[in-house]
Computed example of a mutant assay.
Amino acid sequence: MARPRPRVAAAAATAAAAAIVLTGCSSSGSSGSGDGQLGFVAVKNTNMSTAELGKRQDAPDISGETLEGSQVKLSDYRGKVVVLNVWGSWCGPCRGEAKDLQAVSEKYRDQGVQFLGVNTRDTEKANAVRFEQEKGVTFPSIFDPAGTQLLKFPKGSLNPQSIPTTLIIDRDGKIAARAVGGTVEDALESILQPVVAEPKQ
């Protein structure tokens, strides 16, 4: 069998690298089965999906120690919209989206929105802390190197192998939207704004 020409091989490698960036750091860009049961509907031509009011499942009350050493749990923010971002310092797309996440967190801080990270598969906390410092991330992150908190989520809502993943949790603690893979400011706002605009129950 003929070997591919260098230019063709280089183009294929570039396309493969681009696909990895789009889908995230995992071997699977999918969140697994269960979308129907979770009420998720895919947003056409994006890596995002949303769930209508009345069709959402409860988010588990994950908890743990933050990278700064304080204790936090998701229910601390009940009554706020929570943007939950799962990330790792080893993950290229996580590095790519960090500044966009920080920008959106600052923009929506006074609109009842709280950002919370879950740092996973970082064996050394120092690496995660350095990541936050380099990227200017100021919102808290739970240190969850083994992914034990991620396993608490309903099947299909959050695949621990798909990093990064961002979930939008509504004011009642239900999973309203999801972006699998890296996201950018405009895309994140497109699924966050409708949840922020929902009337308080």
Rank of each mutant, 00 (worst) to 15 (best):
P6T: 07
R7Q: 13
V8K: 12
A10V: 05
A11M: 13
A12L: 14
A13H: 05
A17E: 07
A18E: 14
T23M: 09
G32K: 02
G32A: 06
D35H: 12
V41I: 13
A42W: 05
V43G: 01
M48W: 01
S49Q: 15
S49M: 12
T50K: 02
A51T: 11
L53S: 10
G54T: 08
D58W: 09
P60H: 10
E65Y: 04
T66M: 11
L67G: 05
K73T: 12
L74A: 10
L74I: 10
D76L: 03
K80H: 15
V82T: 12
N85V: 05
N85L: 03
V86R: 11
S89Q: 03
W90E: 07
C91Q: 09
G92Q: 12
G92P: 10
G92Y: 13
C94Y: 00
R95C: 02
G96F: 03
E97D: 10
E97M: 07
A98Q: 01
K99Y: 01
L101D: 00
Q102C: 09
A103K: 10
V104A: 11
E106C: 02
E106W: 04
Y108D: 00
R109I: 02
G112W: 03
G112H: 04
G112M: 11
V113T: 09
Q114I: 07
F115P: 00
G117E: 00
G117A: 01
N119R: 09
T120D: 09
T120S: 10
T120N: 09
D122K: 06
E124F: 10
A128Q: 05
R130S: 15
F131Y: 15
F131T: 00
